[in-house]
Structure formats: C-alpha cells, structure tokens
Amino acid sequence: QKVVNPETYIKHPLQNRWALWFFKNDCTFAPLCVFVLISKFDTVEDFWALYNHIQLSSNLMSGCDYSLFKDGIEPMWEDERNRRGGRWLITLSKQQRKSDLDRFWLETLLCLVGEAFDDYSDDVCGAVINVRAKGDKIAIWTTDYENKEAITHIGRVYKERLGVPPKVIIGYQSHADTATKSGSTTKNKFV
C-alpha cells in the first residue's frame, strides 16, 4: 500500500477562526442596512476558498465594506473587544484604487490569518476595508488603545508589509475619538 504524505490531505489550521463580514452603507431602508456574515474559516485552504470566490474590493460599489474579525468579535466599535480599542488607518487616494487597494487588502488579510505580529497578534481584533468614492480606507483594529508596545509593533510590521515608504506617516486613532470627532479628521494617538 502506498503511504500518502499527510501534507497533501490535511488542511493547515490557523491560530484563530475568522469571520468575513460584508456591509452595504447606502441602503434605502435603514433597518436592513446591517452587517452580513459571509463565512467563517480556520484553515489556510478555507481562507483561499473564500477569498478566491468573492469580489475583489476594487469591484465593490461605493459604500461597501468588508470586515475580517476574529470569531466572536463583532465588526463594530460597540463590541466589548473593540470598545477601548482603535485602528491603524491607511487612507488611499482615488488613483490608488487601481494600483494598491486589492494588493493592500490581501496583504492585510495575510497579516491577520498568518499572525504576522508575533505575540502582539493577540491584540488584533480584525481589519476593515471601506470602499468610498471620496477615497478608500483600510484599517487594522486592535483591542486596547493604551497598549503602546503592541500598537507600535503592529504598526511597524504592517507598514513594512504594505511597502509604505518610511517618509509616509500612518496614524493610529482610538474608536472613542473617531466616534466623537467634530471635524473630518481624528487626532492620532500614535504615528
């Protein structure tokens, strides 16, 4: 009898189970304007099975979001794990939708499912992509805006993985500040 290498039939488990959510922001009937859970996965193979069968972000209509969060964390500020958290925010110009959006989002997903932030990956709650006519955004959400060590480590690794030039500054903002901001910009807690 032939012995088959287990590598060829056992799926590769991820550290976490993840849930991919979809949100459409411009629906005409507000109560139906909700997050829709697309699917959950906890192996490398199932991640790709999902990723390969959904629309690229650049093909979504304006007003749509994808959110990838650890299973059990809802993709909103109000969730217990997000309430005292914040996000590393990447803002993209309109031109970058063609050149960078899909590439940045995939890289973000790979950082999350691959646990790229070492022990600080425990601070990661998820990531969100907002597709908007005025400019797209991608963010990694972490659980505690006071955990400077985790936030700065995650920010450094993330910036490097995206290939953002050192001279470009990215900011980390608490959800509390974003929720209560008066103008269009939120002050950065870390850069």
């Binding site: 799926k11 590769h12 550290q15 991640f47 790979l110 646990e115 790229a116």
Partner: peptide, 20 residues
C-alpha cells in the same frame, strides 16, 4: 507556540486544488 504563517507560505496555497 502560535501558528504563524509567512506570506510566501500562505500565497503558495492560493491555487492548490481544494481538499475535500
């Protein structure tokens, strides 16, 4: 330890035939 996968490892599985 954590189950960490680097980007090259993950990308290597993108077009693998699906496990059933």
């Amino acid at each position: 330890g954590k189950r960490q996968y680097n980007r090259e490892f993950l990308l290597g599985f993108q077009f693998m035939p699906a496990c059933i």
